[in-house]
Structures are given as structure tokens and as C-alpha cells.
Nucleic acid binder design. Sequence first.
DNA 1: TGTTAACTGATATCGTTCTCTCATTACCAC
DNA 2: GTGGTAATGAGAGAACGATATCAGTTAACA
Lengths: 127, 127
Amino acid sequence: MALERNTAQRRAILDAIVKTDRPLTPDEILQAAREAVPRMGMATVYRAVKALEASGKIVAVELPGEGRRFEAAGKKHHHHFHCRGCGRMFDLHGCTGNFQALLPAGFRMEDHEVFLYGQCRECSRNR
Amino acid sequence: MALERNTAQRRAILDAIVKTDRPLTPDEILQAAREAVPRMGMATVYRAVKALEASGKIVAVELPGEGRRFEAAGKKHHHHFHCRGCGRMFDLHGCTGNFQALLPAGFRMEDHEVFLYGQCRECSRNR
DNA sequence: TGTTAACTGATATCGTTCTCTCATTACCAC
DNA sequence: GTGGTAATGAGAGAACGATATCAGTTAACA
């Protein structure tokens, strides 16, 4: 079904995601992929992203109050930083958690997420 | 301007939020408030919630990929648990974080969020 | 190279959350 | 009480991300 053909668009989209070390919004993906295929449309991004996600090549990252972003699959466990200056999302490395301690009796934890908010390097400098 | 009159609707809405120890969606607020004012409409919930938030009586909580929820302001620092069984959000108490350690050089952290996912007490039991 | 079905881009449409409009209701200062 | 006006309820509508449609294009395989 999906993603059977190796088109310039899909190569550009996967490339954009894999070569960037932070999660990208569909819009950021479109901007990046248009450097290779200038007339690409948004629908193509959504179609490719859906197929790439289904095939396990990329994963979705969601930030509270924001749309979905996508990054390459297979990275080791990590969390994210959201810059309030430029709105970009960055990868953090490692995880300090002992989150089991927060869990009320009887609750079962399957997963956890940590988000840090603040100013990225560039935005820290520019003020 | 807003929230100048003490109406039954606004009392019911603030009551619903304050008396529940977990963040509520606008829909959950409407359901709860309708026990006091059966014919209440959704717009009233949104209007009241907006005014209550502006006045600092409640705060918004956002979960990745979900709409906004609201809880009483003034609670001490805490995080949230999202049950994948029933979809409800619960308060956790305390915070284990030493998140500064995750921060890349040059980044400035202003805030952090932790979300745990899994099954709440009831949903753990019912399976 | 030719055939054909998958893919593409443009646009319309969706679904969800939230806001607006407006006629009616009801709070509250007097 | 009464009047002025903020607040309400119901439904329309905006905003947004995401999906469907469809005619035209192109990869892949013989």
C-alpha cells in the first residue's frame, strides 16, 4: 500500500526528518523538503509522515498545546526542550527519573514524559 | 468587565473545579455544573473558565494531544497522571526532578512538566 | 520503451475545540 | 420593587490540524 514507491518527495521528507536532530512540525518538514522539491504540497507531507510512522521509521512527539512533531525512530530514551523564544523543540539526552515514587497506590505506570521549557542557546543570547 | 456578577452558573462552575482534585475538561466541567444548573450551555463554561483563568482562580493544564483542562489555582507544585483506560487525568504529589542536569550548555530552563501514563486504580482493577 | 497503478499537488472538506451573535434572562444598585 | 446591563443558552461560525478528492504525473516492472 503506502510508501511503495521511492519518490523524490518521500526521499526529501525522510531526509529532512533524519538529518535534523530535533522533532519537526509538518510545516517545518515542508519547508525543509521544499529545498529539494520546491513545489511540494502539505498533503504530501501528511501522507508521507503517516506512512513513515506506520512503518516505524519515524515517531510522533506531542507537546502540550501544540500539534504533532516527528523525529527519526530508534533514538535512545530521551526527552524534549521547548524554546519559548523561537518555538522550536530540541532533544535532551538522558533521563533523571525515578517517577515510580510519584505514583499513588494502585496506579500502574506504563510510560512517562518530561518537557523542559525555557530559552534555547540562541534565544538566551539574543536578549 | 467579566465575572462581575455572582450567577448560579459561575458558582456551579467554580465549585465543580475546586471540589474535584483533578483537572477537568470543559466537557467534564459542564457535566458537573449541570447537576446544579441543568440547562447550562457550553459557551457559559468557556466564558466562565476564561474569566476564572484571567482572575487567577484556576489554571489550565495541557496534556500532549489533548485539549485544555482546568484545576484550582494555588496548589503546590505537582504533576499529572493520564489514565489510558478511562482518559481521566489525576494529580500526583511531589516532584522528583533534578532536570537541570538534562539541559544542554547555553540553554536556560524556566519550567518543567512531567506526565505519567498508565492505568489508574479503577482501570488497573478492571482487567 | 510502454503500461499501469501508486503518487502528487491543489483545493475542498472534515472534526474538534473554542468563540461569536443575539434574543432572552436575571443580578444587583438604587 | 424597578431598570440598566451583564450574563446566559442555542446555534452559527471561526481556526486549526488533518484528510479526502481527483485530474495529471511518474516510478517500477516487463
